[in-house]
């Protein structure tokens, strides 16, 4: 399932109009969920995007140039190289970068329900095996309890650990409870970006961003637990940043 645009469910009419506003003025990124994961004021915010309000918007940069920083392709590559070398591009690019952000807290419900189902299935198998061996079935029930408790701990820890950041030249991800993984995905290497929503995610109002590279672990890079509009915004940003990075694909 890819970015459905305006057709994705769960959006109120005001969101739709704001969304269109975003599309016509993609140059200015919209403020998003803050780093503590609480809801942003995005829905109440006026649909005026041309002047980012730096008092409420800690993520976007207030020194936004009037013209799009990404109207680059009109300039020559060499000029851009020089600009990059001298650091002149820092300003505009930083408009797209973010702080470290954590996921939406609702993702815990998503993970927990998955983990509990898994624990229940495993526990049922264990109980069945114990019953088959004429062993006390209570052990199986205890097993289910332990598995559920463990998975709840895992879910909370996983949520606390997860974070992502849009940097100048790369997407940065941190995740994993048992094995903690920190990944850098350079924009140049992004092949395409998907947003997807499973049935459970739709019910919880969540969305997943999937970033593809040509690497052998390419499809590994996905960011779950995003609000749909946030996922779409990220998708848009990454798309533009990937175009901006302008790499020949080196394959």
């Amino acid at each position: 399932m890819t970015d459905g645009g305006d057709g994705v469910s769960g959006d109120g009419p005001d969101r739709l109009s704001e969304d269109r506003g975003e599309r016509t003025a993609p140059q200015s990124p919209t403020p998003r969920v803050d780093s503590t994961g609480s809801e942003s004021q995005g829905t109440q915010r006026p649909a005026d995007h041309s002047t980012p309000d730096s008092s409420t918007d800690r993520l976007s940069n207030s020194n936004a140039a009037p013209e799009s920083p990404l109207a680059e392709p009109t300039r020559g590559r060499l000029a851009r190289e020089q600009a990059r070398a001298t650091g002149l591009e820092r300003g505009p690019i930083s408009e797209y970068t973010t702080e470290r952000r954590s996921l939406d807290s609702a993702v815990q419900i998503q993970w927990a329900s998955r983990a509990v189902i898994l624990a229940a299935v495993l526990g049922a198998i264990l109980t069945g095996a114990l019953a088959g061996l004429d062993a006390p079935v209570q052990f199986g029930l205890v097993g289910i309890g332990v598995l559920v408790a463990l998975s709840v701990v895992w879910v909370v820890m996983s949520y606390r650990i997860w974070c992502y950041q849009i940097r100048d030249d790369s997407l940065y991800l941190e995740r994993g409870v048992v094995t903690h993984v920190r990944t850098i995905v350079p924009y140049v290497r992004i092949q395409h970006v998907d947003t997807s929503r499973s049935a459970l995610e739709r019910a919880l109002g969540l969305s997943t961003l999937v970033v593809y590279t040509a690497g052998s672990r390419g499809a590994d890079v996905s960011v779950p637990g995003l609000k749909p509009d946030e996922a779409r915004d990220l998708q848009q940003r990454l798309k533009e940043l990937a175009i901006e990075a302008d790499g020949d694909d080196a394959l």
Partner: peptide, 12 residues
């Protein structure tokens, strides 16, 4: 030049 992504991983 051939790098796609870079990660560090740390297990428990």
């Amino acid at each position: 030049y051939r790098v796609q992504t870079v990660s560090t991983a740390q297990s428990v």
